[in-house]
Design a protein around this nucleic acid. Structure first.
Lengths: 319, 319
DNA sequence: TTGAAAGCGATACCAA
DNA sequence: TTGGTATCGCTTTCAA
């Protein structure tokens, strides 16, 4: 049964002081309060079960201490992990996170951004946004994660270097051709990293299968690659690698004996894939912390900062 | 560069009307506005790029149209899927969701609840809470998902019937013993469903391995079960089943030829496990919709509603 | 050290 | 049909 909310007025009355004093006590400033008065107020707060109204506070202060977070798909394990890291980083600074999915659809994305702006979020975190948002008359800092945009600040993993490292590792196992399963628009940095490694080793570019960033995408891509008998495949995401694994199993191919695999991302799912996947792990915690820091500290640099990845060796590459 | 926010006053001034009229136009009520005046106001809104301040509105109206969502772990694929479904259900009703993780820790859970209450959420969604929250002097409706609590409303999958159905299916494949890998406190409904099925078939209870709701938990549990040569294992969660699979693969056991498996939950990950897992799928969308509906419509029933699960047959059971 | 009061932006009643 | 204004709960300046 909903009860009447207890306000600062009730507390003031109960303690026999003015509302200003209650405020001083609650916020420990900006004026000092006599210890005895302070105790009366504290007692009143306790007895009445008073909880300051953050909405009123936000209106007065001009800040909600709330971030808006938009991902393409909250169900994607990578984004779920990233969201969790962001929540943690935000919580440690006293912020909370309004999280929502945009389904990778530009129109939905715009609508969600508008909704979050109307709610006066103190900052916007856009994970892999589909387009450059129009924030010109927004009073709010924004940062893109895992995608570089012209007009807003961004942080991302060192895609190119990470991919290169993964492919180099595969090459180190003696493979002369490394197939690529890649998502996105064909200008991905992960693809460039794959090229870098091949070129550095004087190897020709292997076959490329372009697809979506999903398990099914990886599965279909692998099916298109298999007739040519690949010996090693690099996948641009975990999910794709999982799909690749399935295609290989169905074909009776052994991993890593017949085909070696490595993938970008490194979500927990890969550790329990069969065989366990060698991955380039995204530094999600570092990305989250830096993004939150920039938002809070109002760092306006549009410079796209990059965070180093981790190569995690497991069975799928042949190690 | 942060700009000055445009307020309703600016719009009123620009349009040459009072602030009340702006409000009438924005909210399409509660008073009628002459078409011509209305157009002037709309024009002003457009030109100035006015966005109503939801914080002020919330203060005035006494509702934020925001839900608080607490899960034990945002990184868990099941909870991520559920959160996504909740976001969708909430968004369709004009609500947004403040999502946070409590790490399955009661103290953290209490702190997060307090934080969300202070922020005046319009409702609280608690996924698998660790304890019965003290909401006695909160003005807010709450609902538990996937866990029944004495003092608050709840919705959950038909754990017992679902588990029973899964185990029955395994029995239908001719297994005379069904091992159980189960998480939680030992009073789980999933365990009861397993018993139901065994009893109905006149079969003795198979071995039980109690562990955590995680991949690693399933892995360790399976290792403890394997020496006795099980022919079928039912896991109380997807994650555990994934861990079981790994243990089986490492032992060189074939699934489903040597050991059949079925599991509760049905997250997308199971479809791409090797072999694909037969699962009891939780009706996440239905759970989310009902939870949101109850919160919005203020249904105070403490009755614990249950939603039917889906048995999804894949390779791991022997089908 | 404490209190009175203005003001954050929006809603909606009461008058005009 | 439109406008003036009290109010939501809180913070903080200014005065006492």
């Amino acid at each position: 049964m909903p009860k009447e909310p207890v306000t600062r007025n009730d507390v003031a009355e109960y303690a026999g002081v003015s509302t200003a004093v209650v405020s001083y006590v609650v916020n420990e400033g900006p004026r000092k309060v006599a210890p005895e008065t302070r105790n009366r107020v504290l007692e009143a707060i306790r007895v009445l079960g008073y909880r300051p109204n953050a909405t009123a506070r936000a209106l007065r202060m001009g800040t909600t201490r709330t971030f808006g977070l938009i991902t393409p798909d909250g169900g994607n394990p990578l984004f779920a992990e990233l969201a969790k890291a962001i929540d943690k980083a935000a919580a440690s600074r006293g912020y909370v996170v309004l999280q929502t999915s945009a389904d990778g659809d530009p129109a939905t994305e715009r609508a969600k951004i508008a909704e979050l702006l109307a709610r006066q979020v103190s900052g916007l975190l856009l994970v892999a946004p589909t387009e450059d948002p129009d924030l010109t008359d927004a009073e709010v800092p924004a940062i893109a994660l895992n995608r570089v945009l012209p007009t807003i600040s961004s942080v991302r993993p060192a895609y190119r270097e990470g991919a290169r490292q993964g492919v180099e590792h595969l090459i180190g196992h003696g493979h002369r051709t490394i197939d690529l399963v890649v998502g996105g628009d064909g200008h991905s940095e992960r693809e460039l990293g794959w090229r870098d490694a091949l070129e550095a080793a004087g190897l020709p570019e292997g076959p490329i299968a372009r697809t979506t960033f999903s398990r099914e995408g990886g599965y279909l891509a692998a099916q298109s690659l298999l007739p040519a008998r690949p010996t090693a495949i690099f996948a641009s995401s975990d999910l794709q690698a999982i799909g690749v694994l399935r295609a290989l199993h169905e074909s009776g191919l052994r991993v890593p004996e017949d085909v070696a695999i490595a993938a970008f991302d490194g979500t927990p799912e890969t550790e329990y894939a069969w065989p366990p996947l060698t991955v380039i792990r995204q530094p999600l915690e570092a990305l989250a912390r830096e993004a939150v820091r920039r938002l809070i500290e109002g760092e306006e640099s549009v410079e796209a900062l990059t965070f180093p990845t981790d190569l995690i060796l497991r069975r799928s590459c042949g190690c």
